[in-house]
Design a binder for these strands. Structure first.
Lengths: 247, 247
DNA sequence: CCTGATCCTTGACACAGATCAATTGGGCCG
DNA sequence: CGGCCCAATTGATCTGTGTCAAGGATCAGG
């Protein structure tokens, strides 16, 4: 693999994910130390960033773009187990092998640290270790939420749940539009959606069409989604009704 | 609820989960501090230990017995999202509400800490924070492994996967029997198994019968399971073949 | 403009697992 | 011992989603 490496990265102070990533809690001096060991890497859409089973020699944060975590069985069945959006962390300090494939689904930029220096720094910097625990707990919550989707929801509810999640994450990264409605681009193909939802791509397609026919969503092209009434979408998703974002 | 509280608990040094729980990495002096703030609580089979949405004022470890984490939708569909066996940790330092119901499925003993003192101690004791991160990463792996089971496996494979997991955890807590075979008691009813696997209890029952007919397992009574050939069970589960425990 | 590639949509049919319903079996108490 | 209760089994039927197959839309390159 021939991956471009940009040693020159923006200063952390101007970083778009400064306040949401592992470094969120860092003080100026800690940030400076991180800045010395960090480097940027870019990957193109479709590239595999990490292969399941490989030794991982770096960890890092998604700065921009989208990646997925997937597991594959011997016979080819695959299940997505994580969706990595900007500010999400990749890698597991203290572990060697990578348990999943990490694949870029759009062009992506990552802020990387070599694993050993990062681990050292983590041991000396409670702010980082603490933030990482917090983020890991969030991911665990998300994974468990997703277990309910996979285990108990119908195809229609699954699609609606996915749209809610992507829309919500999208909203948290961009200035608010009119509340109650939502507009975004899907960062996933129908096949990737199917892999996330434990469905086939045909079922995904059918249910997208059904939601469109029922006026729950509008589609401009294949990827651009308009949700006129978020409440209705959440009803379809079968989620608790309060409509409150996690914050 | 009237829950017995036993202020008197065994010394940590003799604790059966001493080397696997949050306290695994603690030195003698740290252990002593923990010992001062810990207390034991017992729950009977069927009792709800924590209600989803409630404020959690304690965290703790399962000492003996089995509990489950479950999520429920408004219409009653439920999905188990975690199985808590001895040494597993309950509660999330830094969070207030409980996101799931925690229910004892057998009589259970827990080693508890009031949340605030534990959090304080965690901040001052890297050994605890570090171990907790490690355990949380393990749980995340387990949750993601389970997402593959829920999303992509057939009923038969799901049952076999569950038996593998329970058997494996059981084996790691007890002296080795003859390798290649396995004997244990299911700590779950058919309904609880169904809730874990995203199936109905009828399907669970049918697949258990089918595995018995095929000689993959033997049943003595409803709960006692004998696995004569672990390799065959893992083949049925569709797991990677190496048969290696995670270690 | 045509060609091929990729992604998506739609239809017809099959089947795994859900649902509804009846029966069995083991444990416990009187 | 007999009666009850609950968990589990088994059967019959239904249905949501998978499977297989045939186009359609969009885009890049020649």
């Amino acid at each position: 693999m021939n991956v471009p490496r940009h040693k020159l990265a923006p200063h952390c102070a101007e970083c778009p994910i400064r306040h949401k990533a592992v470094c969120a809690r860092c003080e100026a001096d800690e940030l400076k130390r991180l800045e010395e060991i960090k480097y940027y890497r870019s990957f193109e859409a479709g590239q595999t960033i990490i292969w399941s089973g490989d030794k991982m020699d770096f960890v890092g944060s998604v700065v921009s773009g989208v990646a997925t975590l997937t597991q594959t069985m011997e016979d080819g069945r695959t299940q997505m187990v994580g969706l990595l959006l900007p500010s999400d962390f990749v890698g597991r300090p203290g572990r060697n092998g990578a348990p999943y494939d990490v694949v870029a689904t759009t062009d992506i930029v990552m802020c990387c640290f070599r694993k050993t220096p990062f681990e050292t720094m983590m041991n000396e910097t409670p702010h980082i270790a603490h933030r990482l625990l917090e983020m890991t707990l969030d991911e665990l919550d998300a994974a468990r939420e997703w277990m309910l989707v996979l285990g108990r929801k119908t195809a229609r509810e699954k699609i609606a749940s996915l749209l809610c999640i992507i829309g919500r994450r999208h909203a948290s990264l961009t200035p608010d539009g009119p509340s109650g409605s939502m507009v975004f681009d899907l960062p996933l193909t129908r096949e990737a959606m199917a892999d996330y939802l434990g469905l086939t791509l045909e079922t995904v397609s059918r249910q997208m069409s059904a939601l469109r026919k029922d006026g729950i969503i509008e589609l401009k092209g294949k990827r651009h989604v308009i949700v006129p009434d978020l409440g209705r979408l959440m009803d379809v998703a079968g989620d608790d009704s309060d409509g409150g974002f996690y914050g």
